[in-house]
C-alpha cells in the first residue's frame, strides 16, 4: 500500500526530547504537548513547558491565538540549532485546555505497548 507523503508526528513528551535520546534527529516529526510559558510575538517563538522541561516552538506558519498558561499541542519538525538546542517548527497546533495530562501520559504508555504488539504481530 502506498503511504501518505506527510510524516506523522510521533508523540513524545518534552522529557524524551533531549540530545542523548535516539529520537533526537534533525527533521524528525513530533507531536508535543505543554503549557505555554512565554510567547515572543515578533519572532513567533513560543516556549512550552511540561514539568521542569521546556521546549521552543516556531509558530510562524500557524494561525492560532496563543494564550500564556494554556495547554497546546503542536505537530512539526525538529530543528537542532548549532548549540544543540531543539526547536520545533510547527505546522499545526491547537489549544488542548482541559486535557487530563495524567490520563494522557498513562494512555500513551498503554498505546505504545499496543503498537509494539501490532508491529510484532506484523513481522511474525
Amino acid at each position: 500500500m502506498a503511504a501518505s507523503s506527510i510524516s506523522s508526528g510521533a508523540l513524545v513528551t518534552l522529557q524524551e526530547l533531549n540530545p542523548s535520546s535516539p529520537i533526537f534527529k534533525q527533521g524528525a516529526s513530533f507531536r508535543v504537548t505543554g503549557k505555554l510559558q512565554e510567547y515572543n510575538l515578533e519572532a513567533a517563538i513560543a516556549v512550552i513547558v511540561d514539568g521542569n522541561v521546556s521546549l521552543k516552538i516556531d509558530t510562524q506558519h500557524l494561525n492560532i491565538n496563543l494564550r500564556s498558561g494554556s495547554i497546546y499541542q503542536f505537530i512539526g519538525e525538529l530543528h537542532i540549532e548549532p548549540n544543540n538546542e531543539a526547536i520545533i517548527k510547527a505546522r499545526v497546533g491547537r489549544n488542548v485546555d482541559g486535557l487530563d495530562i495524567n490520563l494522557y501520559h498513562q494512555s500513551l504508555q498503554l498505546l505504545r505497548k499496543f503498537e509494539a504488539e501490532q508491529i510484532n504481530s506484523r513481522t511474525s
Binding site: 501518505s4 506523522s8 508526528g9 499545526v92
Partner: peptide
C-alpha cells in the same frame, strides 16, 4: 483530508 493520529498520516 488527512488525519495524523500520531502513528501515520491516514491517506
Amino acid at each position: 483530508f488527512t488525519i495524523d493520529d500520531r502513528t501515520r498520516c491516514i491517506p
